[in-house]
Design a protein around this nucleic acid. Structure first.
Length: 203
DNA sequence: AGCACGATTAACT
DNA sequence: GTTAATCGTGCTC
C-alpha cells in the first residue's frame, strides 16, 4: 500500500518538455475511498508559461492560474466545457507557470470501479481522453492545488515502466483551435504507441 | 452585468 | 465528417 515509489518534487522541477516525455510509463494513482485506482500514463502535453499562447498562463496570474505559479509537483485540475475536469502536474520552479496535461492512461488497478464509471464502452475507450481518465479515477476540482509529492496525498504518481524512444510519438497539441501559430503547431504532445506490447505479461 | 469561448465528449449524419 | 451539452473564467462595457 505503500506509496514509497511516488515521484519526488525534483522530478517535476525540470523543463516541461522533459517532464512530459518522462511521465510516459509512470503510474497515476488515486486512493479513492481506500481503493487504489491507477493507470499507466500513455499520453501527455506540455504547456509552457505565459509566452505559450496555448497555455492558460497566457492570462497571467489569476485565481485560476495561481497554482501554476507555485512550486512543482502540485496538481492543477480545472473545469472546462461546462462538464469536464482535466488533470495537470505543475513543473518548473516556483514563479514559472508551466504544466503537463495528462491526456490518457492504461488502466491497471481498480478495473471494476473504472468500468462502472465509464459505462459499457469498450475497454480501450475508458481512459483515452483527458476528461475520461479524470472521470474514471474520480479526480475533480477538490484535487486542485494538491501536493502530489506529500507522503499522505491521496493522489500521486509512481515510478513505472521505461518507455524507449522508439515507442514514443510526438505531434501538435489537441484542441487548440483558436491558438495562433506557432503555438498551435508546436509538437508538444507525447504519446506511447502500443503500450501493451511494452508491458510484462501479467499486467 | 454581459459576453464569447473553452487543453472535451458522445452522439449523431 | 458535424454538433449539442453546459458553466466557469477572464475580458469588455
Amino acid at each position: 500500500m505503500p506509496s514509497n515509489h511516488r515521484l519526488p518534487r525534483n522530478f517535476f522541477n525540470r523543463p516541461t518538455l522533459q517532464v512530459a516525455r518522462e511521465l510516459l510509463g509512470t503510474v497515476l494513482v488515486h486512493i479513492d475511498g481506500g481503493q487504489r485506482l491507477a493507470g499507466i500514463i500513455t499520453e501527455t502535453e506540455a504547456y509552457c508559461g505565459e509566452a505559450d499562447l496555448g497555455c492558460h498562463a497566457k492570462a497571467g496570474r489569476t485565481p485560476r492560474t495561481a497554482v501554476m505559479y507555485g512550486p512543482p509537483g502540485f496538481a492543477y485540475v480545472y473545469f472546462t466545457y461546462g462538464m469536464h475536469w482535466l488533470f495537470n502536474t505543475i513543473t518548473q520552479p516556483e514563479g514559472q507557470p508551466e504544466a503537463v496535461l495528462i491526456r490518457a492512461i492504461h488502466p491497471t488497478e481498480g478495473i471494476e470501479t473504472i468500468a462502472a464509471r465509464r459505462g459499457k464502452q469498450p475497454r480501450r475507450l475508458w481512459t483515452d481522453g483527458p476528461a475520461k481518465l479524470t472521470q474514471a479515477l474520480g479526480i475533480h476540482g477538490e484535487h486542485n492545488q494538491l501536493d502530489l509529492t506529500a507522503p499522505d496525498a491521496p493522489l500521486f504518481i509512481e515510478k513505472g515502466f521505461p518507455i524507449p524512444d522508439s515507442a514514443v510519438t510526438t505531434g501538435p497539441r489537441i484542441g487548440l483551435y483558436t491558438v495562433p501559430e506557432p503555438w498551435k503547431s508546436k509538437p508538444w504532445r507525447f504519446l506511447v504507441e502500443d503500450i501493451e506490447s511494452l508491458l510484462p505479461e501479467q499486467i
